[in-house]
């Protein structure tokens, strides 16, 4: 049962991803990205990490994709271009990416993961509480640093996009 759901999610993810990188219309790309991220959230649920799934949907889809769509709209020309989205390097990139994928998958498949670890099933426990606790005890410094980072990003973005006073005049 879980396997079927897994395959459905996997297919959803991969197809959305492929459609995303090949779509001509950038707006469609953004929507496909959202679909992909939904699929990934589903995978997280399968892995019994509900917290991560939630965060994924909230932040990635809710913030990042939405922001991308904003920027797409801001940078679209009025006539709307549907130019082919592939640049000159499509063939070499395809080959390189394919080789990379094949190599790694070969390595992965040949490894017998379960002689090395005991058990083969996912822990059924949901770790939200433990995550929370870890944030405020062992991982408090990264937690704070990430906050500062987000602040810096915020200020940086505002500075980058602010209009110069002279431009207005």
């Amino acid at each position: 049962m879980a396997l079927i759901i897994f395959y459905c999610m996997a297919v959803l993810i991969l197809i959305s991803a492929i459609l995303m990188v090949t779509s001509r219309n950038i707006f469609h790309s953004a929507l496909y990205l959202a679909a992909t991220l939904f699929g990934v959230a589903g995978i997280f649920v399968l892995l019994n990490s509900y917290f991560i799934a939630g965060i994924q949907v909230l932040i990635y889809i809710g913030a990042v994709v939405v922001l991308s769509i904003f920027v797409i709209n801001l940078t679209k020309k009025i006539t709307g271009e549907n130019i082919p989205q592939f640049n000159k390097q499509i063939i070499p990139s395809f080959i390189v990416a394919a080789i990379a994928v094949v190599l790694i998958i070969l390595a992965v498949l040949k490894t017998d993961w379960f002689k090395r670890i005991s058990g083969g099933t996912i822990a059924a426990m949901d770790n939200t509480a433990i995550i929370g606790k870890q944030f405020l005890t062992d991982f408090i410094i990264p937690f704070e640093v990430v906050s500062v980072l987000l602040l810096a990003a915020l200020i940086g973005a505002i500075v980058l996009v602010a209009k110069d006073r002279e431009d207005e005049k």
Binding site: P92, S93, V96, A97, I99, A100, L106, K110
Partner: peptide
């Protein structure tokens, strides 16, 4: 692209010339 290809090349060279690594692929 060049950077990525270089990385793949290094992995490939390692894979071919290092029998230990070859075991992983073979």
């Amino acid at each position: 692209l060049i950077i990525f290809s270089g990385m793949i090349l290094i992995i490939a060279v390692f894979a071919i010339y290092n029998p230990e690594a070859l075991r992983i692929f073979g």
